[in-house]
Simulated assay, not measured.
Amino acid sequence: MIALSPADRAGVDDAIAAALDRLQARAAALGDGAGALASAVAHAAGGGKRVRPALVITAYRALADGADGADGAGDAQGDARADAAVWQTAAAFELLHSAFVVHDDLIDRDLERRGEPNVAGRFRVRAGHYGAAADDAALVGDAAAVLAGDLLLFEATRLIATVDAEPAARDALLQIFDDAILVSAAGELADVENAARTDVPDTDALLGVAHDKTAAYSFEAPLLAGAALAGASAPARAALGAAAGDLGLAFQLVDDLIGTFGTRRQAGRAPGADLREAKRTPLIGFARGGDAWPQVRSAL
């Protein structure tokens, strides 16, 4: 697995912290509820492997080095500006991921993430402390998850919109980000609709949904964003996008296996959640062609 250098990790973490600190400082003036929401947002965006930032920075470093020429020379001020831009862009993709995770937990009716209460879970507990009935506490938790995801989406977009890059590169970043959000939303909706169907879509369609809900924003967009900042050629960006789509699909298939057969530690939530929710993952599509399909179908 690719990893961030200590300097790049620190740069990304600082950019994320600055965005979250800004949010918490502004929310503090709006009362206890807003402060608790901003704190939950910061908690949701904390930690993680920083996979998407690593992809942004790896693509940028590889393609920028190739564009620098033999000596790779550059002035220190320009290098510092470029580093700040790529770190801020990488931070935006981490916040985008956090936003989708918060909304995905809400869609899946999960109250845990990484073995501890997620945004909805935290706010259910908070509502219980002031005497809310169970149904009301659930509504509060769901509302908090919607709003937390919305705040993270805006912060991610704000970082992209304000990145200190050439106008053409910033326009390209906004287009990449815009496309990633739309494709991911379409993939997530298709995933939910498929779970509500009485039939099972064909495996190719399920693979398409798996690509759209994950590969677009987790692999294609981060790699293309790094390429855009590096000023990569159109053929290089096309090749990178095609490879990223395959990587993202593989990533989602592994996640489907964990969601079906993984332990609580691996999945960060109760085992077998995908089966209980009757999710029509590609795994189910492949199972349809096996001898055990009647038993699987009955269970679903």
Rank of each mutant, 00 (worst) to 15 (best):
R26T: 14
G231K: 12
A221M: 11
A19C: 05
E166I: 01
A216I: 05
F100D: 06
S39Y: 10
A28E: 12
E277G: 09
A40K: 03
G268Q: 02
W293H: 04
I181F: 08
A90M: 11
R114H: 13
P167I: 08
A267P: 06
A15H: 12
D105P: 07
L20V: 10
A196Y: 07
V119K: 05
A84E: 03
A244L: 12
Q24C: 10
T281G: 03
A85S: 13
F123C: 03
I160W: 00
A230N: 11
L182D: 05
R280K: 12
D79S: 15
Y60Q: 02
L207R: 02
A148K: 03
P53I: 04
A70F: 14
L153E: 06
I258E: 01
A180M: 07
Q88C: 15
D179W: 09
A238K: 06
H97R: 02
D110I: 01
A76Y: 10
A161W: 07
E193K: 11
Q175H: 13
E220M: 12
I258L: 10
K49N: 03
A273E: 07
A45P: 06
D13Y: 10
H103F: 04
L249D: 13
S98V: 04
A238H: 06
V296P: 02
G69F: 07
G231F: 01
V140E: 13
T281K: 02
L152T: 05
P235M: 14
A76C: 09
L30G: 06
A70L: 12
L111C: 04
A242T: 15
N194T: 14
P201T: 05
S184K: 15
F261E: 12
D255H: 03
F261P: 01
A169G: 07
G72M: 14
A221G: 09
F154M: 15
G128M: 07
A73S: 15
P235E: 08
Q24F: 06
S298F: 06
R297V: 01
G241Q: 02
T198Y: 05
R158C: 09
A40T: 04
Q295Y: 08
D204C: 00
E155I: 00
A25T: 12
A299L: 12
D136V: 12
A91I: 01
D135I: 11
E193Q: 12
E166F: 14
A242F: 03
A82E: 04
S233K: 07
